[in-house]
Design a protein around this nucleic acid. Structure first.
Lengths: 142, 142
DNA sequence: GCATATAGTTAGACTTTGTCTAATAAATAG
DNA sequence: CTATTTATTAGACAAAGTCTAACTATATGC
């Protein structure tokens, strides 16, 4: 799926269309979760999403939140960001960019792709296909 | 501490000297753990180290393995590699290099620094200091 | 050396993140 | 409308890692 210009926040019809574009059935729970994720370009953990989605009824179960985030990631709707040993972040911005991670505060910030480039890809053995290149700048700020 | 040319595997006296160089008291448990880590340049999880160190008596407790790995990482003796949501790897090679992570097999491989360079560091807000730059190439190989 | 203080280790309880299962509910196809 | 597939759920479970309080070992001062 091509990157498209998004207008944040995505409203309900836009979210439903987005799910459809990525071959995902737009159930109520998935729409609710997607609306949280696509409120703005951001990084949320499963736990944050679970809490947010359950601030108002109807509630969504933990299993569904995890299932849904896994599905979204598999379909390429969101991107997993693995920078913190204790939890996975889900990034609603899937366009090419990198990350700055503040170790002391556990906060994640985007670095636009044009500010940082990676040069020289090592040739991979036989059947390997590149799934993605992550650049993470770790900082302290105490 | 400067990088130095290491002769793998590091034997017991070399490990004791290394610990001393990094300001770490060389207790029996720390020596045992360090000898496993510094057998060769490699990536091991806490669990792998716990199992390995307890293959032969005397045994080392889980708490000590975690304490020790945390200490080693803080002192710069080893480097944490965060690529897998379910566990942290400890890299006994602290010289500048990057990583290739095979998602399907959970294996981690080094990419020498000269095969991959990162260009353009974004300027950081005020008090932030860079702790490290990680480049991870994620591949599938099913 | 000996007493004391400090630093390191330990078992096991605990927390957190995430997965699994088996049952139920909803949606889709025929 | 019925059958089949797909999604959701509660709650049990698992794994990685942390914490606590007691214990042991080491280092320091005298």
């Amino acid at each position: 799926m091509e990157d498209e210009i998004r207008q944040w926040p995505l409203d309900r019809p836009a979210v439903i269309k987005l799910l459809g574009d990525y071959g995902i059935q737009p159930t109520q729970q998935r729409i609710d979760i997607a609306q949280i994720l696509f409120a703005c370009p951001q990084h949320l953990s499963a736990d944050q999403i679970l809490k947010t989605v359950n601030e108002s009824p109807p509630s969504v179960s933990k299993a569904t939140v995890y299932n849904t985030l896994g599905l979204f990631a598999d379909k390429g709707l969101v991107r997993q960001v693995i920078v913190d040993p204790s939890r996975v972040f889900y990034d609603s911005n899937t366009s090419q960019h990198h990350h700055l991670y503040d170790i002391d505060h556990g906060t994640l910030t985007d670095i636009p792709a044009d500010q940082l480039t990676v040069n020289g890809a090592p040739q991979l053995p036989d059947g390997m296909i590149t799934e993605g290149i992550d650049v993470i700048i770790r900082v302290r700020s105490e």
